[in-house]
Design a protein around this nucleic acid. Structure first.
Lengths: 251, 251
DNA sequence: CGAACTGTTGATGATCGTCAACTGTAGTGG
DNA sequence: CCACTACAGTTGACGATCATCAACAGTTCG
């Protein structure tokens, strides 16, 4: 199974990351070259197993090029909670550059392609390119902002609004790297995985989706998820994309 | 109302931050001096109003010196979700250095004292002290790890375990800066605020606390929260402090 | 003394989880 | 071609967890 929408610049893993950086801040032509050099020549590999990360002392960070991945943790009852979903252009474990002990797992939700960036490269950038390093720092802060938004949704929104909010967020993230437009995107993820993202049971997710379909807030047959009316679902989900910081902001 | 436990080095805001940095990584004597210089001469102010942060374009970040503060967001129903709790030694809005638009509020949960660190100082450090900057970066990543842990608790733990987990986490954070020992700490926070942290109703928090007391997992009369048996509550809450990264780790 | 705040209790209902059965579809091997 | 299997999705029945509303108790403070 392959995702029906492919990266525009296939075989060129820097493209989506650069797009995100451009969305989020201004970067100079020189800095673009450094990011490209960081990724150029890195092998892009297909990942078919469930676990992207293995071993205790990683020497490289993983950039997602294609597919959906997720960070998760298990609890003793056997339940799984997904704490973040990754789309192309995301570092799935930038953490491992600074935090030596991993406290969670990373799994693919669909078949994925990834590129590996050696920690030595990141260290070199952090020492010579303070502006770029601040931008990586910014990406970590945005990760935190997304986590906070998930906490708000999980704690204070009913299940249908929570699910709708997640769909809106994923759409905006994909749009930023050119993988979604016209309020539709490929989302070949099972309801079981969705349940692990929302902190619900699979059965309740099913009924929640039925409610969203009944209210004409989503269409989701096959792999493509579509919003018939963006404004309506955004209001229903109380979705405000400020927290994603996808627009250029004045310094 | 003042917290019964005071900072050991009162009037010296760098102390608790330095302790945390020492817990999390090795810093040289030179770097210690830089952190001290960063905070030295900054006015330490009492905050009695509810809102620490105001205005859209902050020019300084706020370091919490004494008291409890929290980041939160409101939803349309009027409910509030607290997404992070801050203890002395935390930057409550390090974000504002890199993210110009704030997407959440910061409020005090008890009377607080804070120190303001100008963004110009942080920028200078980021350009000249790459190792220190990586450490601030690391603190942002740990913030993210704590958020992920909250998501797991919120999504997959029942209310009593969730509350117990939160108490364990706060105890470890306070212990790292010398504000807790012997499995007890000052926690003068209302059940209403606790409900906003756990994503529950105040009534249900009350009953949850009664259950924890009935099982002898906590004692909480007045301001002091005490654990009669650390191992038991840690197991009950499935608490593992790895995600806090409070120990020095081999590079 | 009364007002405001926090904590507590009871009654009731909504949301969500669990268990089990069933459907449709896509493979897989005889 | 047809069982057979595996898997995702769906439905119904039932129970557990949690929210809501209302009332009341204890404390602090003016």
């Amino acid at each position: 199974m392959q995702l029906p929408i492919h990266l525009e610049a296939n075989g060129y893993p820097a493209a989506s990351l650069l797009k995100k950086l451009r969305c989020r801040d201004t970067i100079s032509v020189d800095e673009e070259r450094i990011v490209e050099a960081m990724l150029e020549g890195q092998s892009v590999i297909d990942v078919r197993v469930d676990f992207i990360r293995e071993g205790d002392r990683p020497v490289a960070s993983t950039l997602l090029v294609e597919g959906y991945a997720a960070r998760y943790r298990m609890v003793e009852s056997g339940a799984r909670q997904i704490t973040a979903i990754h789309v192309p252009g995301d570092f799935v474990d930038f953490h491992s550059f600074l935090m030596k002990e991993m406290d969670h797992g990373v799994a693919t939700l669909t078949p994925c392609r990834v590129a590996r960036v050696p920690h030595a490269t990141l260290k070199s950038i952090s020492e010579t390119q303070s502006h770029l390093m601040r931008m990586f720092n910014l990406m970590a802060l945005i990760d935190g902002a997304i986590h906070r938004e998930w906490l708000v949704c999980m704690g204070r929104l009913p299940a249908p609004a929570h699910a709708a909010h997640l769909f809106c967020e994923i759409y905006m993230l994909l749009q930023a790297v050119g993988l979604a437009r016209d309020f539709a995107f490929s989302f070949p993820v099972t309801q079981d995985n969705l349940a692990d993202m929302l902190g619900l049971s699979p059965v309740h997710v099913n009924r929640t989706l039925q409610e969203l379909r009944r209210k004409d807030l989503i269409e989701w047959q096959g792999e493509v998820l579509r919003f018939p009316d963006w404004d309506r679902i955004a209001q229903f989900a109380e979705f405000d994309d400020t927290y994603l910081h996808l627009r250029n902001e004045p310094r």
